[in-house]
């Protein structure tokens, strides 16, 4: 890879659920402050790979993980690390937005209070800043204390984004964040992700090839739990090496 800094590197990462392997020997490098898209057919392990980066897999049952995941030069799989600190570095945006069962304000303030103190003024400033960053402030400034569930799905997804960036992560993990949204809301999220990659490393799992083509700088193609092809977006999309990637691009498999 080029000279740009590496945010996450995996070495020999294997994951299995109930003794059936989901990810097999994953060795990848994800560049910092860029948008990396993880693409591939359904059930090939995209989400699993994404959630292994912030150690969210282990809350599920019967998961076995081996290998190294190196973030900032340290293996986060080492035992004895403070897991919440690792997760704090990586915000997660899920497929369907899940606002926490509290008000719009509290949703963003939740992480702020945990990590940056409870000073009401600072919390308020932080919430304001994050909501503005995701373009939600003008829409919700008059009803900050309404339940977050009253927002539209698109607004909820942006709220989740605000909640994630509130704790100042280094990486934003997005698990098909636009799949539940209408085209306009989806476009808003896409634009936001492009804007946010200036300050954050964005990793985007996506099911739509066109979305990956629109936004990705770097692409990882997964197929049945293995990395078949990865590299700069231009290179992967315009000059695929593997037959699987060619088939995927031509629409033979999806």
């Amino acid at each position: 890879m080029s000279k740009s800094a590496i945010q996450i590197e995996t070495r020999g990462l294997n994951v299995s659920f109930h003794n059936s392997p989901v990810l097999k020997d994953i060795n990848i490098e994800i560049p910092a402050k860029q948008l990396t898209a993880i693409i591939g057919p359904s059930g090939c392990g995209k989400t699993t790979l994404l959630k292994s980066f912030n150690r969210l897999l282990e809350i599920q049952e019967d998961v076995k993980i081996s290998g190294e995941i190196i973030v900032d030069g340290k293996d986060i799989m080492t035992s004895g690390l403070n897991v919440p600190d690792i997760r704090k570095k990586m915000g997660l945006i899920s497929q369907k937005p899940y606002p926490l069962p509290m008000s719009i304000f509290e949703n963003v303030a939740y992480g702020l209070r945990i990590h940056h103190g409870k000073n009401p003024k600072k919390v308020e400033e932080g919430v304001h800043h994050c909501l503005q960053e995701v373009g939600l402030w003008n829409e919700v400034k008059d009803r900050l204390h309404d339940p977050a569930s009253r927002l539209s799905v698109g607004q909820q997804q942006r709220l989740c984004l605000a909640r994630a960036i509130a704790v100042k992560p280094e990486v934003i993990l997005c698990d098909e964040p636009t799949s539940a949204l209408d085209p306009i809301a989806a476009q808003q999220i896409e634009r936001l992700l492009l804007k946010l990659k200036k300050d954050f490393t964005v990793i985007l799992v996506t099911h739509t090839l066109r979305q990956a083509k629109r936004v990705a700088d770097y692409v990882i193609f997964l197929y049945f739990g293995m990395v078949v092809e990865h590299g700069l977006a231009d290179q992967v999309f315009n000059d695929p090496k593997s037959p699987e990637m060619k088939a995927y691009l031509s629409g033979e498999i999806s």
Binding site: L56, M90, L100
Partner: peptide, 25 residues
């Protein structure tokens, strides 16, 4: 599960998640 993940991924501990999210939800 995704709701718990949402809380955990902002760096909340398990107990914080139980107290603030699970009890409420």
């Amino acid at each position: 599960l995704a709701l718990k993940e949402a809380s955990l991924s902002v760096g909340a501990t398990k107990w914080e998640t139980v107290k603030k999210v699970i009890f409420r939800a």
